[in-house]
Design a binder for these strands. Structure first.
Length: 405
DNA sequence: AACTCGTGGCC
DNA sequence: TGGCCAAGAGT
């Protein structure tokens, strides 16, 4: 589907601008800023220079980012840090990633260190960040890279072959770490471009068109900064709700702003309803305070993570099934109830607790109070444990831990 | 090609 | 409050 309006035509920025009858931004203003990202590519003469000038002045400072000034001074990006941050950022907010990124690079400063770690330790460090197959693929990728001498491949195609690196991440690493003119298309870029061109086609269907448009915009110089600039723009100006078009460096190039309602882009298809599943979780507490845990299968939901014993999560609660699913017969008492929402279903869990003598059912293990916070417990499991034993999964602080209550 | 796969913040 | 959505990948 063709865009309703095209701020810049494909073949030539100048003629497209004239044809669409929009203001000629590169002619009317900001010509002084156009030095940095000058591209010889047809049709990209307008966007990249203005975006890069904006990025130079307004970029975010992030723990994994080399600021444009430092980059210009010769500071080289660290591919390991770029890769690690990009994997963490997949479908995950910047704010959530910051602390995990710092913890990972402190614990494993380079890809060899990460390769030397156990998958179990990586899962523990990833706990709480979500999408746990990323952690397993991260470790697998580190192993492969370490085996080839510790250097990441520098081409988009080669990066794409590594576990956990898809189209977006391969392009992002190629552009940011290796200065390759790759078309980096994430959710931010999809939003920015769909607004620039008022793309009325629903997002899933419009992706090839958006990618083609981005490919035309990528400058030969500073492709990594261009990619990060597009994402910063999407994150801080061209936001999903209430975009701040008045501050946008691309407002003169934007078709959606003319419509008066840029927020209606991108167009998305309605999403499926979330079914509700129910189940029960069992928090067995030993005399020394240890809690009974087990490891989930490596694949599937919360794959490879640790959990308290639970029933299957089904549509309805069945008392007999619940009793039979307990790790052993005990004086199970209902300690609470928790609700959790996953990507494609919601979960209500009844939490039962019992004081037990200390038998260890097959496939289970005990975790002492001092160890609980370090286990590979996904958030839903921490919620369940907290419902039975408030504070049990909190990190013991030196202040509170050493003082008797 | 459609599903699966977490979590937290926002309004 | 509940829906929306974030620097997506694997199957």
């Amino acid at each position: 589907m063709a865009p309703l309006a095209q701020p810049r035509k494909t073949a030539s920025g100048e003629s497209g601008k004239a044809a669409s009858g929009e203001s000629g931004r590169s002619a009317s203003k900001d010509s002084s800023k156009a030095a940095s990202g000058d591209s010889s590519k047809a049709g990209s003469g307008g966007i990249a220079p203005h975006l890069l000038a904006w990025y130079d002045a307004h970029h975010r400072e992030l723990p994994w980012r080399i600021a444009p000034r430092a980059l210009a001074s010769g500071t080289k990006p660290n591919p390991y840090r770029v890769w690690l941050s990009e994997v963490m950022l997949q479908q995950t907010t910047v704010e959530a990633v910051k602390a995990y990124f710092r913890a990972f690079v402190e614990k494993w400063p380079d890809v060899e260190a990460l390769a030397a770690a156990s998958t179990e330790d990586v899962m523990k460090a990833w706990a709480g960040l979500g999408y746990y197959s990323r952690a397993r693929n991260l470790k697998a990728c580190a192993d492969l890279v370490a085996r080839r001498g510790g250097s990441f491949p520098d081409s988009e195609a080669s990066l794409r072959e590594l576990p956990g690196i898809g189209a977006y991440t391969a392009a992002a690493i190629a552009a940011i770490a290796f200065d390759r003119p790759a078309a980096v298309v994430d959710g931010n870029v999809e939003r920015v471009v769909s607004r620039l061109f008022s793309i009325a086609t629903p997002l899933s269907e419009a992706k090839p068109e958006i990618r083609a448009l981005v490919e035309r915009m990528v400058p030969d110089k500073r492709p990594g900064d261009f990619a990060q600039a597009m994402m910063d723009l999407g994150a801080t100006i061209c936001t999903p709700r209430r975009p701040n078009c008045m501050l946008c460096p691309l407002r003169a190039d934007c078709s959606a702003i003319l419509s008066g309602d840029p927020e209606r882009f991108p167009v998305r298809l309605p999403k499926a309803e979330k079914p509700l599943r129910r189940g029960a979780a069992f928090v067995a507490v030993r005399g020394d305070g240890a809690i009974l845990l087990r490891k989930r299968p490596d694949k599937g939901l919360l794959g490879g993570m640790t959990e308290v014993p639970t029933t299957n999560w089904t549509a309805r609660v069945d008392g007999a099934t619940t009793a039979a699913a307990a790790p052993f017969a005990a004086d199970w008492r209902r300690a609470g109830q928790i609700a959790h929402v996953f990507t494609h279903f919601a979960l209500d869990l009844d939490v039962f607790q019992a004081q037990v003598s200390g038998d260890t059912p097959a496939g289970h293990f005990w975790s002492l109070p001092s160890d609980i916070s370090g286990e590979a417990l996904p958030t839903v499991m921490k919620k369940a444990i907290e419902a039975a034993i408030p504070g049990a999964t909190k990190k013991p602080s030196p202040h509170t831990a050493k003082r008797p209550a």
